[in-house]
Each structure stands twice: as structure tokens, then as C-alpha cells.
Amino acid sequence: MPRIPSSPVLLAGLLATAAVAHAVAPKQFDAIVPRSLPGTPRQWTYASGVAELALAAGVAHPRTRRVAALATAAFFVGVFPANVKMAVDARRGAPARRAVTLARLPLQVPLVLWARKVGRSATAV
């Protein structure tokens, strides 16, 4: 089994990078927001970007790391339906796009495990 990373700095960087991507290129994220959610896809895109930025800050700071990392794990579970929607939408697309969207689905598991590991290894301050 692959080794799950434990670096809170890398996890915070991943979250911050994703947050910036939501702000800079929101259209690609709008497309994967499940239509069953209330409001507009753009609202959800920006809200998830803000959430990722807050989680990044929380994971980066030792005092909030434990709670923020566990919240990050929950966030990764919560956005899984968007990844499923992306894979479903790609069914009739190019084979390479289908492969990428399908490959993303199981990658959510190591992300959740990574966040949990960061939370468990955080020291109480």
C-alpha cells in the first residue's frame, strides 16, 4: 500500500492552490457542481474555494491543525459527488478525459486519509 503523506504544509498548500484555482478559473468548477444543490453553481464554486482557503489556514497553524485537518477530511468526502458528476458527464467524452475523471474517484481516498493523518499527528498547543 502506498505511503500516505503526513506533511501539514503540503496539505495546506494543496488546499490553498485549489482555492486559488476556484477564484481564477471558476467555470471549470461550475460545471461539476451537482444541479440538485440550491443556488447557482458559481456560488458553490466560490464557497468551496473560500472553504478550502480557510481549511488551508487552519491546517497550516499548529493551534488549529487538528480540527482543521479533520474538517478537511470531511470536506474531501463532501466534494466527492462533484467528482462523480465529472466522471458521469465525461462518459461520452474523449477516452483520455474519461480515464482522468474515473482515476480521480479513488484518489479521494488517499486525500481523506492524508487529512486524517495530519489531524491525528497534530500536537495539542
Rank of each mutant, 00 (worst) to 15 (best):
A16S: 10
A21Q: 10
A115W: 06
F75K: 08
V77I: 14
A96W: 14
V59M: 03
T72R: 04
P62M: 00
P26I: 07
R3K: 14
V79F: 01
P5T: 03
L105H: 08
A96E: 14
D30R: 10
A99F: 12
G49Q: 09
G78E: 01
A23T: 10
I32K: 09
W114G: 07
L105R: 09
D89S: 07
A51L: 15
A124C: 00
P38Y: 02
V24D: 05
P41C: 01
L113N: 03
F76L: 14
L113I: 00
M86D: 12
R97V: 14
P2I: 07
P95F: 10
P2F: 10
M1N: 11
L14A: 12
M86W: 10
P41M: 00
V79H: 02
T123Y: 03
L102P: 03
T101G: 03
L102Y: 12
R116L: 12
L107Y: 00
V59R: 08
K27H: 14
L113G: 05
V50C: 08
A12F: 03
P34V: 02
A74D: 06
V100S: 13
V77T: 13
V33R: 08
L55Q: 10
R97Q: 13
L10I: 10
P41K: 02
A115F: 05
A57I: 03
P2L: 07
P110L: 02
L107G: 01
L102T: 08
S121V: 00
P95N: 13
I4V: 13
A122H: 10
P106K: 01
V84R: 06
T17V: 11
T123K: 14
R97I: 12
G13V: 08
T64S: 15
L55V: 08
P110V: 01
T45W: 08
G78I: 01
A124E: 05
V9Q: 15
L107A: 11
A54Q: 05
R97G: 01
V20P: 03
W114Y: 15
A51W: 13
H61L: 07
V100A: 15
A16D: 07
R3Y: 07
H22N: 07
R35D: 09
D30H: 09
L10F: 12
A19S: 15
G119S: 04
L11I: 11
R91D: 03
V67P: 00
V118E: 05
R3Q: 13
V125F: 04
A12P: 06
L107D: 00
L37F: 12
T64W: 09
P81L: 00
T40N: 02
P38N: 02
A99V: 06
Q43A: 12
A21Y: 05
R104C: 01
L55G: 09
L111I: 00
R98S: 06
L55H: 11
R42M: 00
R65H: 10
W114E: 02
A94E: 15
R120A: 13
A31K: 15
A96G: 11
A99G: 13
V33T: 12
A19G: 13
T64L: 02
A74L: 11
V50Q: 03
G49C: 07
E52W: 07
P38K: 07
F75Q: 05
R42C: 01
P41A: 02
R63S: 07
P95T: 12
G119A: 04
G13C: 14
A54K: 06
V24W: 15
S36M: 03
T17G: 15
L15H: 08
T72K: 03
I32L: 10
